[in-house]
Design a protein around this nucleic acid. Structure first.
Lengths: 287, 287
DNA sequence: TCTGGTTACGTTCCACGTAAACATG
DNA sequence: CATGTTTACGTGGAACGTAACCAGA
């Protein structure tokens, strides 16, 4: 099970084509065919059905493993290189959409570049060394850590915690309330935004079932999400400090006891700009 | 970064010798030397210092990644094979020492073999397919899942939860108390038994610092551990139902709110004895 | 000097590309 | 029939073993 073969397997499944995978990976059709054949004969199992190309049951199992495996492989390489050749260039940051508060933005002196990704994406980028530091946000019980995907030996440090609000469009029957419990909203329509404030995440952390998913927003832009929410497309949970556009009111979430938590994620950092920035970001501050 | 090379790298570090690693892996000295050289030149980094053989900083980083990586690789192969060729032989169980209660033992009709390992070991065996089902125990907040190492897509299901006691040797000043808080025992001497009731685990779950480690017991035999405890070698946290030998009294742990939790761990199971046994074990029961 | 890792070199085998054969919609 | 995967075959390179070399305790 050479990672090389896993890589092409993943690519073939993604593109649903041997030939397309071949051009992407810089091989010939034939080579890809042989690589898949090698994998199948190594495992003694058929992984793909051809024409149309689709994974078998065994192939699906392999696929589940292959991506994290390749990610960890990148993570290993990145960690080794970082340890051997400390970088003295400005740090690269990856942040999840609701993670960068104004206070944090004011501390980014050692940062050279910054970009946004979903929560798991940020962790993956840090692990693979494409970012030096990650700032991720999510829901958790007070003083509980976020449960992030395990992609290797990463340090996670609390940066901040704050209360939550439910963003309700003006005119919503509950918009006048002083506080809300999630249970009150089980039957309401929710906006599902994986990567910003995924419903699955809310359910898992709050141990509440039956938040009805309305529309799904695939993307990382909070403004777009809030515009949808203001137009009555569904409810969203946000940190209390979030600035809401006109048309939305934030009602404090009083139960279950949850907070919006921001954490810094990084690998073992040798001395340098990245480590300095990490230290600055985790110095205690308000919020 | 061929897994093959990672494997020999790990072996070389473990044995602290190229030649010993070579015989273990069935290579010549020379081949091992070349493999390590290949790894180092691929990464562009020195991984080992020779004579004596010891990992460099970069090598240590790689080592941290290599073992979980190889484990996941085994897990992937196991999952694929399981999906392709469902087994109809009796299930193989791996259990952590305090996980097998009498009630569970009574349900093991579909089981063909059973063996003990530390908590992480059980998870690893299940992931790698050396066991079909794992029964693991640990401390957790009530109705919280155990935090097990992430070695792939494994299902974990609650089997049981019960209260905790601190096992105190007769004559211990606190042995007469009706209940104890962990804070009362911060200064006491504790027995550290990684794999049964690791102190690190207690600290992490309870968020308590400063449980002083006395003696460390490396092993999986509860009786041995309790014999040490009875002899005053240190304190241990146990599930309330544990039968204590003479000389030990169990005092209920009243705070922080923690329970002894037992979970079933398994990979995606095709129909067969293993799946049936899993169903039987997770049918609700007392305790 | 002896133990143990490295380097040189020859052989084998594996992986890829080219091109022809083949299957399927 | 056309598109796209497999198979056949030849070549280059990678990986290993043997054996000579070299460095450190």
């Amino acid at each position: 099970m050479d990672p090389h073969l896993l890589r092409t397997f993943v690519c073939v499944v993604r593109t649903r084509s041997f030939s397309d995978a071949a051009v992407r990976l810089g091989y010939t059709q034939s080579a890809v065919s042989q690589q898949i054949a090698a994998l199948e004969s190594d495992l003694g199992v058929s992984l793909l059905r051809r024409r149309p190309v689709a994974p078998t049951e065994a192939g699906r199992r392999l696929l589940e493993h292959a991506e994290p495996l390749l990610l960890r492989l990148d993570a290993a390489r990145a960690d080794v290189l970082r340890a051997a050749r400390p970088s003295h260039r400005p740090a690269v940051l990856a942040v999840s959409p609701l993670a960068l508060t104004p206070r944090l933005a004011g501390l980014l002196d050692g940062a050279g570049a910054i970009h946004t990704a979903g929560r798991d994406g940020v962790v993956a980028e840090v692990a693979a060394g494409r970012a030096d530091l990650g700032v991720v946000d999510g829901l958790a019980a007070p003083s509980d850590p976020l449960d992030l995907p395990d992609v290797g030996p990463l340090a996670t440090v609390r940066i901040a915690e704050q209360d939550l609000v439910v963003a309700l469009p003006d005119g919503h029957p509950l918009a006048g309330r002083a506080g809300l419990r999630l249970g009150d909203l089980a039957d309401a329509l929710w906006l599902d935004a994986p990567g910003i404030a995924g419903l699955a995440h809310v359910r898992a952390v709050a141990r509440v079932d039956g938040l009805r998913p309305g529309m799904v927003y695939h993307g990382c832009d909070v403004r777009t999400l809030l515009t949808l929410a203001a137009a009555g497309r569904g409810l969203v949970v946000l940190p209390a400090s979030a600035e809401l556009p006109r048309g939305l009111t934030g009602v404090p979430l009083t139960g279950p006891r949850l907070v919006h938590r921001i954490e810094l994620v990084h690998a073992h950092l040798p001395p340098g700009p990245a480590r300095d920035l990490a230290a600055a970001l985790t110095r205690p501050g308000p919020g």
